[in-house]
Design a protein around this nucleic acid. Sequence first.
DNA 1: ACCTGAACACCGTTCAAGT
DNA 2: ACCTGAACACCGTTCAAGT
Lengths: 233, 233
Amino acid sequence: MASRKNGSVARERLSRDTIVDGAIALADAEGLDAVTIRRLAQDHKVTPMALYWHFKDKGELLDGIAERLFADVRLPVPSRKPWPEQLRAILEALSDALRPHPAVAGLVSDRVLSSEAGLIVAERTLALLRHAGLSTEQAAQVGGYLLNAVAMLVTTEPGREYGPDSEARDDAIRRKTASLSGLPLRRYPSIVSSANVLAACPSPDAYFRLGLDMLIAGVTATAEQGSVAANPA
Amino acid sequence: MASRKNGSVARERLSRDTIVDGAIALADAEGLDAVTIRRLAQDHKVTPMALYWHFKDKGELLDGIAERLFADVRLPVPSRKPWPEQLRAILEALSDALRPHPAVAGLVSDRVLSSEAGLIVAERTLALLRHAGLSTEQAAQVGGYLLNAVAMLVTTEPGREYGPDSEARDDAIRRKTASLSGLPLRRYPSIVSSANVLAACPSPDAYFRLGLDMLIAGVTATAEQGSVAANPA
DNA sequence: ACCTGAACACCGTTCAAGT
DNA sequence: ACCTGAACACCGTTCAAGT
């Protein structure tokens, strides 16, 4: 009847989960900068200090967001397919979980080993890389690299810099294209001639497919060069 | 004769360059969160409002930092070497410029096309990718991917999460190793068995070399698959 | 052109207290 | 166990003014 003045509905009771829910929804709608202890409290119709019972400080809240993102990863069931395919399935599962929340996707970097959900993703990835023939050191480095790279792909997803709004977005793209096209052709031939695709970057899906292709290809090359155990042919 | 109470020396006069200098030095020493209009003003013995004559707002200051990083890139002279080698030289030049300033390296993402220094790096990269046989769309996407990936490598450089301090660092690494080793072996066999290398990640240099190797290998695979113009053999 | 001063609407967080 | 109230030391930024 009354209520629902702000972004999210008032809950019966506060909990870590409901607070993280609200934080992610707020970040999706207004960006990570809008995620503020005071703003979250307001959305939950509660005093800012109430949140401090559930989280030691704001850092712990951000940890909670990262943990939730990892928990949303629907890992593929292990199979007997070639390892590059299995690796791709894992990376796709991760990117599927992150892509709906580009504003907070970067939080997963450096937080993989700090939550149970993150550990599960890391374990599967490491196991697969070891199976591909990498040494423990290589697997650790490549594994970290891969998870960070997927998060990076989501964070830098083309078009996101202009905001989600469609009309203002098109306008910004048109302005950017014009500004790039107007650059001195002598000094920036490649940029001028691809001004439209640089400003617009047609399809996020294509960007993602290409990014994952390059990641897998990079790992494959490393595995072939570093060891022959997994590929005796 | 007095003065030098704070981090950086008081300058004769304020300018965009001196402010950016101070901002980068402050970020190097205390992290990006310490970079604050008020703190910079204090370091320069000036009122916070003084900075607003040189920068419209804080965002423009961050743009200035990114521009400076791009300006520090010592691009290799063009040569007739195979393109993968030239590409590696460009990416190494970029990472050489970013690695001394990991706290601000992430600022270059999404800002490549917003400054002259960034445009020069982008132009060289795009030209080389086109020369490798990529289409304009592919070159634009791969180019963006590569620059973002290098910035990511610098930002996530292993060991950085524990701060630059050496004694506290070793302590944190030992704690992390112990905590990972104590995980249930049944559920996390790969993590437990590589706990030490996961927590410590031996050499940043090795991480970088491997990261660049994987990036180049990924581009090579894409170029071979997408076109045969550059590699008719 | 370049900088100061006072003020405003925000932050995260501590500490003591209520129920 | 779970939340409130008041206070503190910070933010970025606007607006009017000084030189």
